[in-house]
Design a binder for these strands. Structure first.
Lengths: 339, 339
DNA sequence: GACTGGCACTCGAAATCCAGGAGTGCCAAC
DNA sequence: GTTGGCACTCCTGGATTTCGAGTGCCAGTC
């Protein structure tokens, strides 16, 4: 049904439309790409492509634009992910290398991603579940207020405030600190919950209610899904979306405000090196039917810690964007693996 | 030069223009506000106001719109800050009360502010300089990599990674931890720098290079101006700016990407309860000449910890916005004072 | 059978034109 | 000082027209 030339035509249409953002007609197509055939032939092919649902016309007697299905075919079969130039790679790694802590890594990554893709970038903070406990700290703020600080192997720091009904002796705080550290350090967060359960029993009955309150708070911190956070950047790139402000820009801006939606957009963390591309209506969030998401997991070699990606108009430059996302994910993973 | 009625006219013009976003003419003005005079009289007054530079016409034979000077006069002399309803106050305090830690307070505040003002909200994280040290923690991540964690009285947690050229003995880490805590705990961060200077001398010469590296890192963390961070929210409210996308929305989005610019916009932390209003060209950032900033400090009674505020179009509802900003600042201050 | 040139047709975008009307400034009268 | 009246300005919105890129189809060619 679709011979090679028709696919060539589709590829040309996508590339042209991405470059110009204007419906592309048969004549301009043969002018710009050397397809070796006449406009009339291209028109026949276009009619076929339209029948198959890969392209469409905004109105009769206008050029064609790719449909979501067209882009899908393009990324699946008609394009290869572009690799970055050596200079760009250099720039990425040196920019990331300057980070002082995990938060800074995330901030820099989101900025970098926004800059090189010229799209809106989203980076999820590494999840707690897959990392392990490096250290637990208990600090007395006031006699009735304790601060729990949890430091994970990925360098992430979680804090929780615990209010008590009675004054807490400094002695007990010290005991707790050492007990928690000996039982927790090195444990994966996923396992920590079960390990913690037994801790209160090791303390005298008088202290148990406090200890179990603390254990509860810690478990909360370990398992808190709501605490899955993301950073966004490059919102200014929305300006380049085109003119249909209300339809293209507003929904994206609104989505960016909602962590939950962003997490859903990024999707499950895929194994590193596997790119997820969701085009237009393929998105789980229907208001963003005119935008695409390119995402991938990052983290250690074997399993993903979290996800990062970009959102942009469906008519984006997929090969370059995918290359950039993949490259950034790679460098961040490497950086985190070294830590 | 400007009698009471002329000021009434100016007030009416501002209020009308803010409500409708359309140039307001003499006839509609007397229709909507009962000024007790005829359109012709109003026209004379308008001519005078225009001579004085408080209003202007977009083109001949159109209504008038306020100039920046007009808004300035309005906020200074013609309006009173609106207080919130009891229900709104209730909502604010209960929403803020749910915060689990300092970061969460800031996130909730920015969200709240954006929601009730329906503008873009900016909240600066409490500065380190005016708080004191609660605790310092040193954690070994790998033999050659230490993690320094600094916990301040405001609940803020700063982390720094320190790379060393040689392996560090666990013994030394313990010594350092206790030494740092005894010397630093309770110190104001502003003073901490001087106190720290003497620490290396207390250690044997062999360890001194490491200790001073650590001290340097800590001092950096204490004084790091670059680390002054801000949170933004409500970017989706930019949609309501009107249609001149390129001129109104783009520069704001770009400014939001730059922490430095945002900090400059918020300005010096004013004493709490004092509102700063910068209208149009009064802004330090010339690209935002069509937007206004309403900001105020928050923190303890006597001195401001940091600044929060909103940016919006010059034609905003100043009395309500100012009231909302002031109220939110008040509640956050209260919350932080309790901690 | 596939490709091509030719041609009539379609239809949106941009330019042009044309009221309609809101608003103004000015003046004479109260 | 205020007001009604009036001529004038000029933007806004709708209707009309033109222009041209693009299409589909058909007959002819290789």
């Amino acid at each position: 049904m679709l011979d090679d030339r028709k696919l060539d035509v589709l590829r040309a249409i996508v590339e042209d439309y991405v470059a110009t953002h204007e419906p592309v007609g048969s004549k301009t197509l043969v002018d710009r790409h050397n397809l070796g055939v006449s406009p009339a032939t291209v028109r026949n092919d276009m009619a076929a492509l339209e029948d198959e649902g890969y392209i469409t016309q905004p109105h009769t007697s206008a050029g064609r634009i790719p449909t979501d299905a067209g882009y899908r075919l393009f990324v699946d079969r008609l394009s290869t992910v572009k690799t970055l130039s050596a200079a760009e790679k250099k720039a990425i790694s040196s920019f990331l290398a300057g980070a002082v802590d995990l938060d800074d890594v995330v901030r820099r990554t989101v900025r970098l991603l926004a800059q090189i893709t010229r799209q809106v970038a989203i980076v999820q903070y590494p999840t707690l579940a897959r990392s392990s406990v490096r250290h637990v700290e208990v600090v007395t703020m006031t006699p009735r207020r304790l601060l729990l600080v949890l430091i994970t192997s990925t360098g992430r720091v979680e804090q929780r405030i615990l209010e008590t009904t009675e004054d807490v002796a400094e002695q007990l705080v010290g005991d707790l600190r050492s007990r928690l550290n000996t039982t927790l350090t090195g444990q994966r967060l996923a396992d920590a919950t079960t390990v913690l359960a037994g801790v209160p029993d090791a303390f005298p009955p008088a202290d148990r209610s406090l200890v179990s309150a603390m254990v509860t708070t810690l478990i909360e911190a370990f398992t808190d899904e709501g605490e899955q956070r993301v950073a966004v950047g490059g919102a200014a790139n929305l300006t380049r979306y085109g003119d249909d402000f209300e339809r293209n820009v507003k929904p994206v801006l609104e989505a960016l405000e909602e962590q939950v939606i962003l997490l859903k957009l990024l999707g499950e963390a895929t194994y590193p090196q596997t790119l997820t591309v969701r085009i237009g209506h393929e998105n789980p969030y229907e208001e963003l039917a005119t935008t695409s998401v390119v995402a991938t997991g990052y983290g250690s070699k074997s399993e993903a810690l979290a996800t990062l990606g970009i959102v942009g108009p469906t008519h984006m430059d997929y090969p370059s964007t995918m290359g950039a996302v993949r490259a950034v994910a790679r460098y961040v993973s490497q950086l985190l693996a070294d830590s």
